[in-house]
């Protein structure tokens, strides 16, 4: 590769070097630094899946001895917080998401052969069903960090769709 019209071979070499540097800086691998204290705490859970990070909170689904439950971990204190009324022995959680305040959690779970979408309020310790209109089977979700908008992946008639639900 040469620089057209350049009178100086040094300038051409410099151009090539700058171009190569530019390409590399656009795509340089960044080594990931694990957070050992948090990861050791997570390791004690057994299996963990479907993480949702927001603010100081990490929501996930943890499992031990074949039973799965939703867990909310305060990353500043590195410990789980109680979620009264959220987990129940006859329900299987499928996906979870938390807002940045750690106040609202959106949840998909299976119970009695049905797949349900629900919103949990931590301060009120209440779980409220969120019906889908038109009906469908929810599979994945995410709350925005403000806890005001919920995006849900829904199966309808063999097609995956995304619903947006504005929350009061």
């Amino acid at each position: 590769m040469t620089l057209q019209g350049s009178q100086h071979p040094g300038a051409a070499r410099l151009g090539v070097a700058l171009l190569a540097t530019g390409l590399l800086s656009a795509c340089v691998a960044t080594p990931l630094r694990p957070l050992p204290t948090i990861n050791q705490r997570l390791e004690q859970n057994g299996s963990n899946r479907d993480p949702s990070l927001s603010g100081r909170w990490l929501a996930l689904i943890s499992g031990r001895d074949g039973r799965e439950r939703v867990e909310l971990i305060d990353l500043e204190l590195n410990r789980p917080v109680p979620l009264p009324g959220l987990n129940r022995p006859d329900a299987q959680p499928l996906n979870v998401s938390v807002d940045a305040a750690g106040e609202r959690m959106a949840l998909i779970r299976q119970r009695d052969g049905r797949t349900e979408l629900a919103l949990y309020s931590r301060s009120r310790q209440s779980l409220q069903p969120l019906p889908l209109d038109p009906p469908g089977v929810p599979r994945q979700l995410q709350l925005d960090a403000n806890g005001r908008v919920l995006a849900v992946q829904v199966s309808r008639g063999g097609l995956w769709q995304v619903d947006l639900i504005e929350l009061p």
Partner: peptide
């Protein structure tokens, strides 16, 4: 809650778009 639910905005090029992982 149900009244506030609506589909994600169209991407403009396909009506029956399969859409996942929002």
């Amino acid at each position: 809650w149900a009244r506030r639910s609506r589909p994600a905005p169209s991407a403009g090029w396909e009506a029956n778009l399969s859409r996942q992982d929002p």
